[in-house]
């Protein structure tokens, strides 16, 4: 319990016109912790995720990752800093194979690297096996059932090796727990279908 604070949210506020979607929210997550955000529809859970991820900008407040304020960074920078959001609705590339989708998560944000490093292929295959996508690696995500699409999202999150994983989980997100160094995923403890779980890497 004395692990250092990874993600610290302080006084976070977001207004959409006259509507206050998030009002003065504060919380902290330490390494290894899992925190659930629960609330009725429209209470602002998804907005919190977007604020953390830099998809929306807060009106007030800060988001700190390992002590660094990331609250006004663009999304791609937030992602590289170690926040690996897993979207509620899975968003695979529709024209690429499952394997290519996972490989994408390994690529650097470079304009000049035309060929992926050779290790990427092996790493992507390894992750696909681990989350249970080994048999469908070369299929198009459009042909996969819902459960496999969730697994693909997980594979992408693991590939990014994030420090914090904000995830908005649906009713039947599979519970997968990795060993030691892996990102942990878990079903939210309560039955509320709309709860949100920022999971933490150990």
């Amino acid at each position: 319990m004395n692990a250092p604070v990874r993600l610290a949210v302080r006084g976070l506020t977001k207004r959409f016109g006259g509507l206050v979607a998030v009002r003065d929210l504060s919380f902290a997550i330490r390494a290894g912790e899992i925190l659930g955000l629960i609330g009725p529809n429209g209470s602002g859970k998804s907005t919190v995720m977007k604020l953390i991820m830099g998809i929306e900008r807060p009106n007030m407040g800060t988001v700190q990752l390992d002590g660094v304020d990331i609250s006004r960074w663009p999304s791609h920078r937030v992602a590289r800093a170690g926040i690996g959001i897993v979207f509620q609705r899975s968003r695979p590339l529709r024209r690429q194979t499952v394997l290519e989708n996972i490989k994408l998560a390994f690529l650097p944000d470079s304009l000049w690297q035309l060929v992926a490093e050779p290790s990427v292929d092996a790493k992507a295959r390894c992750i696909a096996e681990r989350v249970g996508l080994g048999a469908v690696m070369n299929r198009n995500p459009a042909t996969l059932p819902f459960g496999d699409l969730r697994r693909l999202e997980m594979a992408k999150a693991i590939a990014r090796h994030p420090k914090v994983v904000p995830t908005t989980s649906g009713s039947q997100s599979p519970a997968i727990t990795g060993n030691q160094n892996d990102v942990r995923y878990s079903q939210p403890p309560e039955k509320d279908k709309k709860s949100t779980v920022p999971a933490k890497k150990e």
Partner: peptide, 25 residues
């Protein structure tokens, strides 16, 4: 068909997801 082409396709198909994966769309 290169790695950059893959990132470009990701940026075109779903810019928000591409950014969440760490790409400057």
């Amino acid at each position: 068909r290169s790695a950059v082409g893959l990132i470009l396709q990701a940026s075109g198909q779903d810019p928000i997801e591409a950014q969440a994966l760490g790409f400057n769309v």
